[in-house]
Design a protein around this nucleic acid. Structure first.
Length: 374
DNA sequence: CCCCCCCC
């Protein structure tokens, strides 16, 4: 590639290469031979608003808002939908986002208007390697790079090695952003709808994922709940660009996936093994999984809640080598009592412990509990 | 931004 083409490629196609070369020749003449062709090309680029053709190419980990204009190469790891919005001057703006990564990390790109069209028209896909020139600023979840009219995003033949800093579940803390994590899909909740503060209807759903270090609840907002449609239990999934918040009710840290996050299936291998607690070790106020055999069966009962709705409950007992405990089965779980026999091997996963009837400790198996009859 | 551990 000659040096004029090299500089031309940083212009993102704002003019044709022929026109660019013509302008470079004119510039050389204009300068009466005072500058070489490369310098002339850079001056023309500058005239066209691209000011940083001479700047060095940097790595993603070194990008921060203080640098301003940045040039780098990266591989596209996720593509988000383009949204249109109304500008104050009455024109319609377009904005789209990409997550890109190199061997030092990942960063979010925001593409505006005609650059956003590259996403909309399907010209940019996951796995594409890109030359990027834009400007870094502080965004919604850390530094992001904006690519507007004079920004550049071109495919390149270079193959870029990617390292997505992947966290282990046990390392996730309240307040973290840009979380990438993989796990086994352990549970998928029903989708709930709710009224947002602005009056519109929101949707929310949860999944539970686990890796070799633990498990964590994931909350999916609005259209992100649809990501689970193609998934089934035991699939390995990955989360890109999630953020962590402590749940006000449970006081447990959860991963949230909003507009900028991705949840998808992956081929990665993830090990998950459920951790079963000996019945004798159970104390009130925690979530537990136990493994044992049925040692008592109660009756199925319907009851009315204070709010007028009805629900079902049944009680069973489960024993292991260390003790025996009562389990309250709520809702659909209650029907299990008719399928169980004494000595049936059983696993009760994620049931909540509390002091129950006669102040004896018991487990509540509610809608977040999974029960496996072995 | 939601769920909210409920029975006898």
């Amino acid at each position: 590639m000659d040096e004029i083409t090299e500089i031309y490629n940083k212009l993102g196609g704002i003019i044709s290469e022929d026109d660019f070369r013509k302008k470079v020749e004119e510039k050389v003449e204009q300068m009466s031979g005072l500058c070489d062709v490369k310098t002339a090309a850079m001056l023309v680029a500058h005239d066209l608003g691209v000011t940083d053709t001479a700047k060095e190419v940097i790595k993603i980990k070194d990008i921060n808002p203080e640098i301003g204009n940045v040039n780098f190469v990266a591989k596209v790891v996720s593509v988000f939908d383009v949204r249109e919005f109304n500008r104050n001057d009455g024109t319609i703006g377009k904005v789209g986002n990409l997550m890109v990564a190199d061997d030092t990390g990942s960063i979010r790109l925001t593409l505006w208007d005609e650059r956003a069209d590259l996403i909309k028209n399907g010209n940019i896909e996951v796995g594409d390697c890109m030359e990027i020139s834009g400007y870094a600023k502080d965004g919604y979840s850390g530094t992001e790079v904006n690519i507007g009219r004079y920004g550049v995003i071109n495919t390149t033949d270079q193959n870029i090695e990617v390292r997505l800093d992947s966290q282990k579940i046990s390392e996730i803390r309240d307040g973290m952003g840009d979380i990438n994590v993989s796990g086994k899909l352990l549970d998928i909740s029903d989708v709930r709808t709710f009224q947002k503060k602005d009056g519109s209807q929101g949707r929310v759903g949860n999944i539970l994922i686990g890796d070799e270090t633990g498990k964590i609840r994931v909350t999916l907002w609005d259209e992100k709940v649809d990501s689970t449609k193609e998934m089934k239990l035991d699939d390995t999934i990955e989360i890109i660009n999630g953020y962590a918040r402590t749940n006000n009710f449970s006081q447990q840290v959860e991963i949230q996936i909003g507009n900028h996050g991705v949840l998808r299936k992956t081929d990665a291998e993830v090990e998950y093994r459920e951790n079963f607690t000996p019945i004798a070790d159970i104390i009130p106020g925690e979530s537990y999984s136990i493994e044992g055999s049925v040692s008592g069966l109660g009756e199925l009962r319907e009851f009315d809640r204070d709010d007028g709705t009805t629900n079902m409950v049944s009680n069973i007992y489960v024993s292991d080598d260390t003790g025996r405990i009562r389990i309250a089965l709520w809702g659909d779980h209650a029907l299990l009592v008719d399928e169980l026999d004494i000595d049936t091997p059983i696993q009760i996963i994620d049931a909540y412990s509390k002091a129950g009837f006669n102040d004896e400790i018991e487990l509540s198996a509610g809608n977040r509990t999974r029960i496996t009859i072995m």
